[in-house]
């Protein structure tokens, strides 16, 4: 692997202008608040960054089509740092100022679209939700492990989507009320029970962190099982469907593959208790006599 240094292109007028803005931004109140707050949590890496005023990123580069990128490499980017900057902000900056071919998925910038899960300093995280100041320098940004790399930080998500869709990820019920304007009742407790499981944003961080999924391509994986949990536990679907769901979940590449390593739970940006959900489904399966072990 080679390493290439990226330097800003000729500074145009707009560049200088925004450089000034960066300085202003660095002293703005919310930046200060974030700084104070982070300061409470983590001391060291931030200090140096502030002195140098740039953050050092090492970003994985690969493009099957472009001669000097066919061999994977890391590029170095030195991004002017402003307090509160996220890894996604830094990548956008590097792309817009240094190298427009730097490629990564992103959209919402607020941890809801699930596009920008990367392997940042050795852990699956959302770029938009990860503060640079929480990280050691240089910040290594790589594509999600165990997924095929398409280009730079973009991985092929097809297999992940296939697994999600393998669990019949849609509400089904035989118990709809008669009246057209009549909703199905759901108790608050039941709503509460499924609440965490409904938060999944399909980022695939969990899937990428899972050793079992890495070894068994057919393993449904934590996100898909969680999706199944979301419906199996929803009282509105009714008993018949629950049995049907349990059969999907306890299939050969289903819940029983999980070895409770908790890696998925640790990386989930939505704090979904994945391992717990999987364990609960295992207990449920046993209870239902669907599987003896």
């Amino acid at each position: 692997m080679s390493t290439q240094e990226q330097k800003p292109k000729n500074q145009t007028e707009t560049d200088t202008e925004s450089a000034d803005e960066d300085i202003i931004a660095a002293s703005s109140p919310q930046q200060r608040r974030l700084r104070e707050k982070r300061g409470r949590e983590i001391e060291s890496p931030k200090e140096t960054a502030e002195q140098e005023d740039t953050y050092h990123l090492k970003v994985f580069r690969y493009d099957p089509e472009v001669a000097d990128k066919q061999e994977p490499r890391f590029d170095d980017f030195h991004v002017p740092y402003r307090q509160g900057m996220t890894v996604l902000d830094a990548l956008i900056y590097a792309r817009d100022r240094f190298d427009s071919s730097l490629t990564f998925r992103h959209s919402c910038r607020q941890a809801i679209c699930g596009s920008d899960a990367f392997f940042i300093n050795g852990r699956q995280r959302l770029g938009c939700r990860t503060q640079l100041s929480d990280l050691e320098e240089p910040v290594r940004v790589e594509p999600l492990p165990h997924q095929e790399v398409v280009k730079d930080l973009v991985v092929d998500m097809e297999h992940f989507y296939d697994q999600m869709e393998a669990v019949e990820p849609y509400f089904q019920t035989n118990e709809l009320p008669e009246g057209e304007l009549e909703e199905q009742r759901q108790s608050r407790e039941n709503h509460e029970k499924i609440k965490m499981s409904t938060r999944c944003i399909w980022c695939a961080a969990c899937y990428s962190s899972c050793n079992i999924a890495a070894g068994d391509n057919e393993y449904l994986g934590p996100a898909a099982i969680n999706k199944a949990y979301r419906f199996a536990m929803d009282e509105r679907e009714g008993e018949d469907l629950k049995q049907h769901r349990m059969r999907i979940i306890e299939q050969e590449h289903g819940v029983w593959r999980c070895q409770t390593q908790f890696s998925c739970t640790m990386v989930c940006p939505k704090d979904i208790p994945l391992t717990e959900h999987i364990q609960e489904l295992k207990r449920e399966a046993v209870k239902n006599n669907l599987k003896f072990w």
Binding site: F171, E180, E182, R185, Q186, S187, R188, I194
Partner: peptide, 23 residues
């Protein structure tokens, strides 16, 4: 809107609930 919102409920949308289980 009322009918179309109830359709969402019938498709399983996890709306917040009242004590009586209605949305």
């Amino acid at each position: 809107a009322p009918e179309d919102v109830i359709t969402l409920e019938h498709w399983g949308m996890p709306f917040s609930r009242e004590e009586d289980g209605r949305v």
